Amino acid sequence: MPTYVCEVDVEGETQNTQGLAARWGEIREGIERLGGELHDTYTVLGKYDFLVVFEVEDEHAAFQVSQVIEQHGLDTETMQAFPVERMGELVDDV
């Protein structure tokens, strides 16, 4: 399954840390309902507050995952990711 990374921005009214922590279980369940797997969630410094790494079948399911996350009052930007090791085989064909 393809891997996706989702940068997550916490919007103003969701700054309650305890409430936010409880939402990750619901987000994991939503990803699993879509046939995906949540690999890692990181708190990050910078423009975004969290980085979520997950696998799902295709870009349609990745879009649905972003909607699951946004239903919790979070803003997302989702991208497909490739292992660095795979970069060599991808550029060999160029």
Rank of each mutant, 00 (worst) to 15 (best):
V84A: 13
T17W: 15
T76N: 08
G30V: 00
T3G: 04
D49A: 07
V52Q: 00
D75Y: 13
T14G: 13
G25S: 11
G30Y: 04
E11T: 15
E77S: 15
E26M: 07
G46W: 10
Q15E: 10
V5P: 00
H60I: 04
F82T: 13
E57K: 15
D93A: 01
V56E: 02
R86Y: 04
Q67S: 10
T41P: 05
N16A: 05
N16E: 05
V5N: 00
R33L: 13
E57Y: 11
I27T: 04
V10N: 06
V94G: 03
F63I: 14
G35Y: 08
G36I: 00
V5Y: 00
F82P: 01
T14L: 14
E7C: 06
N16W: 03
D58M: 06
A81N: 02
E89R: 12
D9K: 15
I27C: 01
A61S: 11
Y48S: 07
W24P: 03
V44E: 13
E70A: 12
Q71E: 11
E89G: 09
E26F: 09
H72T: 06
E7Y: 09
T43R: 15
L38R: 03
Y4F: 14
A62P: 03
E11D: 14
T41F: 07
V8F: 04
E70P: 00
M87H: 13
Y4L: 07
V91E: 08
N16F: 04
A22V: 06
I31Y: 02
I27L: 05
L20G: 02
L34G: 03
E89C: 08
R33S: 13
D75T: 15
E37N: 12
L20W: 07
L45Y: 00
Q15D: 09
M1C: 04
E7P: 09
L90G: 12
V65G: 02
F54W: 02
F50A: 13
D9P: 01
H39V: 05
D58P: 01
E89F: 09
D9E: 14
V56I: 06
E89Y: 09
E85S: 14
A81W: 01
V10I: 14
R86H: 03
T41Y: 06
V68K: 07
E89M: 09
G73S: 11
A21V: 14
E11Q: 12
V44G: 14
L34I: 09
D58T: 01
E32Y: 08
Y42N: 06
E11M: 15
A81D: 03
W24E: 14
Q80A: 08
E13D: 14
D75W: 09
G19I: 07
E13P: 09
L38M: 10
E59P: 06
A81L: 04
A81V: 11
T3L: 08
R33C: 04
V5I: 01
E26T: 10
